[in-house]
Design a binder for these strands. Structure first.
Lengths: 343, 343
DNA sequence: CTCTATTCCGTAAACGTTTACGACGATAGC
DNA sequence: GCTATCGTCGTAAACGTTTACGGAATAGAG
C-alpha cells in the first residue's frame, strides 16, 4: 500500500513512481500510464504525513469555530460560506477542515496549536473581535490567514466583509419613508466589530434624517431567539414604544415575533420589523415574511478563499500577490414585516 | 522550533527530550521539568506530520458532512452533536475535524480519500443511507468508525440512534387522544433509514389505534421550509384534509406554518401540527410553540464518541472493547401547536 | 566514430518524530 | 572487589514521501 510496494509491484524505482504520480515531465509517457493504472488498481494514495513531512505542506486550510456557535449565531451563514470556500480551495487541491473549539480552551490557544503543530497551511478566521489577539499572533509569525469580517484597524491581512453602512442606510431610508420616527436598534455582543459598526451607522442615519437618537431605543441583547424575545419585551414596556425595530440577526427576530404574538400584536401591521442579517430560507417563510438583505454567501466564500490564496506564498504568483480586502454590497429585499405606511 | 533545536538548547539528546515530553517514566524528574519549561518558553509543539509518520497515528477523528447540508437538513442538530463528540474525544487528546464534501465528489470517494491518505484515525458518519456503501468499505478495511443513525441491517459497527418507534407511538397516542382520526405524515428522502422507520411505525401505530391508513395522508417532501409548504398545500387541497399532521423536521414545519397562515388557518386551533424532530430553540418560539421531542444532543454526542473509542484498538481496553449500539429515548414536550381537543 | 545533448530513471538524503537498544555510572548485595 | 540491578540517557533506525544528483542509454551533429 505504500509507494515502495507499488514500485516493487511495477519493477520501477520509487523515485520514478513518485515523479509519475506528481506529474513531473521527466518521465516516459508509457511508464506514467502504467504507474497511474497500477495506483488506481491497488488503491494507492500518498500518505499525507510522509508527504507533509518532506515538503512542509499539508494542503489543508483550517477554519476554527467556537463550539457555542449553535446556541448563539447563525449556523446557516457559516455553512453556506464554508461551501463557497471549500469549492474554491479544492480547485487547488486544498481541503477545508473545520475545527470545533472545546470549551475552556480559548480561541487563541486553539489557533496557536494549529500553527505550532503545523496542522494546516493557512487559516480562515470568523467571529473576529474588535481587538482579536489571534490576528497579531498570526501576523507576527507571518502565517497565512484571512478573516470573515474586517477588524477595527482594517489590518494588513485579507478579509471579506459586508457593507453594513449601506444596510443601515437602506433600512433607515425605508422605515423613515414609511413614516416611522421612533426606530429602534437591537445589537449583540459589543465586542464584535459588526455591532459597533451598526450602532455608529444607526446614529449617523438617524441624524441624517433629522430624527432624534433616543438611547432607550438602542439596546444590547443576545443574538438568538431568547435575546430577541427579551429585547422586544423591554421595548413594549416603554412609555413610548418604537414603531419600528431593526434586528441584526434573524434568529432574534423569531423571538421578537413570538413576543409580539403573545402581546396580540402583528408584525407588519402594528409594528415594523426589519432584519439586517443575510436572507435565509426561513426569513421568507416567517409570518409575515421578513424584510432583510440578500447576499450571495456562496460567492462570498469563494472570494474569501481567493483572498487567502493570494496571501499564500505558494499561490501568490497566480493571484498577483495583492492584498484583497473587499466590502460586499447587498440588496434590501422588502417583504411584509415592515411594509406598511404609518398614519 | 524542532525537537532538535530544543534539545541543542538544553544540551540534551533529542531522545530524552521526546521521552520527557511524552511522559515516559525513565527520565529524571529534574530533567523533565527543565524540558517542559523550555518547551513552553520556546513555544515548541511536536510536528504532527513527523509524529504521525513515526507512530502511525494522527489523533484526529474526521466527520464528513455533505455540503448541501445547509439547504436540506438541520445544522443545529449536527452542531450540538459535534460539540458533545468533540468534548469527549478531546479527553483523549483527539481532535474532531469536519470535512465538507465538495459537490461532485460523492460521499464514498471522500471517505476513501480520508482513509487512503490516512487523514484520520477514525471516522464518524452521519446521514447514512439504507444501503450505504461507505459502511462496507470501512468495515472491509477494518477502519474504525461509528455512525449517527443505525443502518438497515443493524450492522456490526457502533452507532447511536433515536427511538423513532417511541416517538411515533407517543405522537399518535397524543393526537388520537385529542380526538384526531385523520392523522397525516410527511417524510423525507426515502433513501434514509429515518424515514423508512417512521413510515413503518406510523402504519403500525395507526392500526393499533384502529385507524385506517390512508395513502393520501402519507407524502414525501423535502425536509426544509419549501418542502413543508408544498406538503401542507397538497393536504389542504384534499377533499378531506387531515386534522393533524406529523412532520419529521422542524424546518418543514416553518413552511407548513407559512402555508397555513396564508390560508387563514391557525396551527393549534384549526389543525394540529406535531414534529418528531429534536427540540430546538426555535421550536418554542414559533407561533404557536411547536410540540416536538426533547433529547440531550450534547450527551448523545459524547456517548457516540465513546462508542467510537471502544472500537479503536488504541482505546478498546479502557472501554471493555464491547460493541456499543444504543437507541436513545426521548421525551415528548407538548406545546400549543397540537394541544387542542377536536370536537 | 566521437562528442554533446536529451531522455529517462535509479540512488540516497532529508523532513521531525518516536523508540528499541545499548551504555554509563551509581548503588547494593555477596 | 566482583557482579547484578537500577536509574538515566545517548545513538541510531524507522515511518513514507519528495527531489537533487548523477548515470545509462539513445539520438543527433560534426
Amino acid at each position: 500500500m505504500g509507494i515502495k510496494e507499488l514500485a516493487r509491484h511495477l519493477n520501477i524505482s520509487i523515485g520514478t513512481v513518485s515523479r509519475a504520480l506528481n506529474g513531473h515531465p521527466e518521465v516516459n509517457a508509457e511508464t506514467r500510464k502504467r504507474v497511474l493504472e497500477a495506483a488506481a488498481a491497488l488503491g494507492y494514495a500518498p500518505d499525507q504525513a510522509g508527504r507533509s513531512l518532506r515538503q512542509g505542506t499539508l494542503n489543508v486550510v483550517a477554519l476554527p469555530l467556537s463550539t457555542d456557535l449553535s446556541s448563539k449565531t447563525d449556523t446557516m451563514f457559516f455553512m453556506e460560506l464554508s461551501r463557497g470556500i471549500q469549492d474554491r480551495l479544492s480547485e487547488h487541491g486544498l481541503d477545508l477542515v473545520i475545527h470545533l473549539n472545546k470549551p475552556g480552551l480559548d480561541m487563541l490557544d486553539r489557533v496557536k496549536r494549529i500553527v505550532e503543530r503545523r496542522q494546516a497551511d493557512a487559516l480562515i478566521l470568523a467571529e473576529t473581535r474588535d481587538d482579536d489577539p489571534r490576528l497579531d499572533y498570526l501576523a507576527g509569525r507571518s502565517f497565512p490567514f484571512a478573516t470573515m469580517g474586517r477588524s477595527w484597524s482594517g489590518g494588513s491581512h485579507p478579509w471579506m466583509d459586508l457593507d453594513f453602512d449601506f444596510a443601515m442606510r437602506a433600512a433607515v431610508d425605508r422605515l423613515a419613508g414609511f413614516g416611522h420616527r421612533r426606530i429602534a436598534l437591537v445589537t449583540g455582543d459589543p465586542g464584535y466589530m459588526l455591532d459597533t459598526m451598526l450602532r455608529d451607522a444607526y446614529r449617523r442615519e438617524l441624524t441624517g434624517h433629522a430624527l432624534a437618537v433616543d438611547e432607550e431605543l438602542m439596546i444590547k441583547a443576545d443574538t438568538h431567539e431568547e435575546g430577541g424575545y427579551q429585547a422586544m419585551t423591554r421595548f413594549l414596556a416603554l412609555d413610548a414604544p418604537p414603531t419600528a425595530v431593526i434586528f441584526p440577526h434573524y434568529r432574534a427576530v423569531v423571538g421578537a415575533y413570538s413576543c409580539l404574538a403573545e402581546a396580540g400584536l402583528q408584525p407588519g401591521r402594528d409594528i415594523a420589523i426589519l432584519s439586517c442579517s443575510a436572507d435565509t430560507t426561513i426569513a421568507q417563510f416567517m409570518a409575515p415574511p421578513l424584510t432583510c438583505f440578500r447576499i450571495d454567501l456562496y460567492s462570498l466564500g469563494r472570494r474569501l478563499a481567493e483572498a487567502l490564496l493570494a496571501a499564500m506564498p505558494r499561490f501568490a504568483e497566480s493571484y498577483g500577490g495583492a492584498l484583497v480586502q473587499e466590502v460586499w454590497p447587498w440588496e434590501l429585499v422588502g417583504r411584509d414585516s415592515d411594509g406598511f405606511l404609518l398614519r
